[in-house]
């Protein structure tokens, strides 16, 4: 049954934060609406007050600031695809954006919406995790930055507090000696929910040693996550097939997947090893 809701349409960020503060626990943010609006039909948000952020221009934009790429929370997935800063400095995010749902949805869906929804299969999470992204949470009284890794805590669970919205996401501009790779495994070549997604970002120093590593997995655990054991293994070493094989194995071991209509846990685990190996190998070849 269609939900009964209150809908507020703030014109700017200050108004949005005031509303959010006033509404407290009943306040629910409406970003691109690509999840929430269809859920209204089934009565999921009855009694809630939705705050529509689509008019809040301050939340949209992609900039380079103090060595960080900073994007507004209301930035759409299409905005990412079209932006030169993303193309230049966040290839893995660009790739995930291109494979995000479909163009009609990408035109509405926002990065903050995708992250705060906190689906295990959230498409932008693995690349942003691998990029060491932080998220900015803003309330009327406070603004704080959290590591994205800490922000998502479980299936559809985050550290977003009542009265807060995700105003921005940022990550340090990767060094010139870094390279990334991304793969999404779905049951269809477009508009598919991930069976697995993997984003890898490595920085190699002048001696050929791995200086920094980000390996993030989606859809194989209750939340998208970084595989630190595999990253630690790589750091300070030269990327070689045996090392890559071991890191891939560790990544697969770190998965806690479930069986669902898209695939079994065993399958997800198995292909995690394959995809992580392939991505690391691809990076190794790209850096040669």
């Amino acid at each position: 049954m269609q939900s009964e809701i209150e809908l507020y349409r703030p014109q700017d960020l200050a108004e949005a934060l005031t509303l959010l503060n006033q509404l407290g626990l009943d306040g629910k943010l409406l970003g691109g609406g690509t999840n929430i609006v269809s859920e209204l039909r089934d009565g999921h948000h009855t009694g809630k007050s939705l705050i529509d952020l689509s008019r809040v221009k301050e939340l949209r934009g992609i900039n380079l600031q103090d060595g960080y790429i900073v994007i507004g929370g209301g930035t759409t997935i299409t905005d990412l695809i079209d932006h030169p800063l993303i193309c230049t400095h966040a290839g893995i995010l660009l790739e995930s954006a291109r494979l995000f749902a479909n163009p009609l949805v990408r035109n509405r869906a926002t990065v903050a919406g995708n992250l705060t929804d906190a689906s295990p299969a959230a498409d932008t999470a693995p690349p942003l995790l691998a990029l060491n992204a932080e998220v900015q949470l803003m309330s009327q009284s406070e603004t704080r930055w959290l590591k994205l890794e800490d922000f998502i805590t479980g299936v559809r669970k985050t550290l977003l507090q009542p009265g807060e919205l995700m105003s921005a996401i940022r990550w340090p501009v990767p060094s010139d000696r870094s390279a990334g790779a991304y793969t999404k495994v779905g049951l269809r070549k477009a508009d598919a929910i991930s069976v697995l997604s993997v984003a890898v970002l490595l920085e190699i120093d002048a001696t050929g040693m791995c200086k920094q590593a980000g390996i993030a997995l989606g859809a194989v655990a209750p939340l998208p996550f970084r595989v630190h054991v595999a990253e630690t293994l790589l750091i300070g070493k030269e990327l070689k097939p045996e090392l890559i094989a071991e890191a891939s194995h560790l990544a697969a071991e770190a998965c806690r997947p479930i069986d669902d209509i898209r695939g079994t846990a065993a399958y997800r685990k198995r292909i995690t090893a394959v995809i992580v190996r392939r991505l690391l190998t691809k990076i190794l070849e790209a850096l040669k």
Binding site: A190, I193, I261
Partner: peptide, 25 residues
């Protein structure tokens, strides 16, 4: 196209669960 049915109940009753080919496939 994979219609999952458990004890007579369709587990894939939407076009995001029961997948048909898109223009990309």
């Amino acid at each position: 196209e994979n219609m999952v049915v458990k004890e007579g109940v369709i587990q894939t009753p939407s076009l995001s669960e029961y997948l048909i080919p898109t223009s990309m496939d």
